[in-house]
């Protein structure tokens, strides 16, 4: 069954307007990755997560609820409508990731912070002011909510003295680098993904990576942001043999993730097709976006293992 599109978009847009995220999560889960890293609050350059990796255990929890309901996670409450969600954050009642699941995803922003620190890059963090970028609202055409939200994100960055932003995932990179300048007059932040920053700094790897992996380019990195060579240079420079699937680089195939919130079955079908392409060249895959990771790993089940690029880089630059 297709989801009621209007009601679904309404709920996500309301969440962004009322709770500053399409899928609001507790502050503790948003900031736990910073523990023990000694990152100053704000400053000229910050590592900005846009909460993408912290959201993953909640999305996974909602997907599990969806499977139990036999439909998308939103189908369970689009019937009761937007009105209830305005008073009560319904998604919090449906997703119950365990502590282990929640903590496991802290690993990715921690990986990135540690690799950047090893490379001698100085940066701070925004802690609870590190907000979701609004990427899903942008894709769903919720333009008014996005415009208002972008101003709030930009104000938090300016308040903290930020001039340069280092991003992790492709969606936050695209929003802060290419979309916000079209929404905000005088937007003047320099935005780079950590993969680009590392390629510029070019630290010498301390450990050699063994073996091979199929590289899955994110559509947003490859076609929206031109980030194609940086991940290849970093991984191959550390010794990993990369296998290119049939659709690769600027011609990459999508993981299906963008359809997860409205048409989960279509999303799963596209993920399955992409997994077959990747599996044809290697039994191990490397992703650079949390949504790609979740969609592809779910479709592959135990037939193929995916790892985030930061896991490889953390190994390559370990002390």
């Amino acid at each position: 069954m297709a989801l009621p599109t209007g009601a679904t978009i309404g709920i996500l847009a309301d969440n962004l307007r009322l709770r500053r995220s399409v899928l609001p999560i507790p502050t503790e889960d948003a900031v736990r990755w910073t523990r023990g890293l000694g990152l100053p609050r704000g400053g000229r350059r910050v590592l900005y997560t846009g909460l993408m990796y912290q959201l993953i255990p909640y999305i996974e929890g909602l997907v599990t609820a969806q499977e139990q309901l036999g439909d998308s996670w939103l189908a369970g409450f689009t019937g009761v409508g937007r009105q209830v969600n305005k008073l009560l954050n319904i998604s919090r009642f449906m997703a119950h990731p365990s502590r282990e699941q929640r903590e496991a995803w802290d690993r990715i922003p921690r990986n990135v912070a540690l690799v950047l620190q090893r490379a001698g890059v100085e940066f701070g963090a925004l802690y609870e002011e590190d907000l979701y970028s609004g990427a899903l609202a942008y894709d769903l055409g919720a333009d008014e909510e996005l415009r208002e939200h972008a101003q709030i994100v930009y104000a938090a960055l300016r308040r903290n003295g930020v001039q340069e932003v280092i991003t992790i995932d492709p969606h936050t990179t695209n929003m802060l680098r290419s979309v916000y300048p079209t929404l905000i007059d005088g937007y003047d932040l320099r935005v780079q993904s950590y993969l680009e920053v590392l390629t510029e700094v070019a630290p010498i790897p301390t450990h050699r990576l063994e073996g091979e992996a199929a590289i899955h380019d994110s559509c947003v990195f490859a076609r929206y942001e031109g980030v194609v060579q940086a991940p290849r240079d970093l991984l191959e420079g550390a010794g990993l043999t990369l296998r290119e699937p049939e659709h690769s680089g600027t011609q990459t195939w999508c993981c299906g993730g963008p359809l997860e919130s409205l048409f989960p079955k279509k999303a799963a079908a596209q993920a399955a097709r992409r997994v077959e392409e990747l599996r044809a060249v290697s039994g191990r895959g490397v992703t650079m976006c949390p949504l790609c990771y979740v969609n592809l790993q779910k479709a592959a089940k135990d037939r193929m293992r995916f790892e985030d690029i930061s896991d490889f880089l953390r190994q390559a630059y370990e002390a």
Partner: peptide, 10 residues
Amino acid sequence: FSCLLCKLCD
């Protein structure tokens, strides 16, 4: 609403 916005066509 079924488009991936993947820009392969673009």
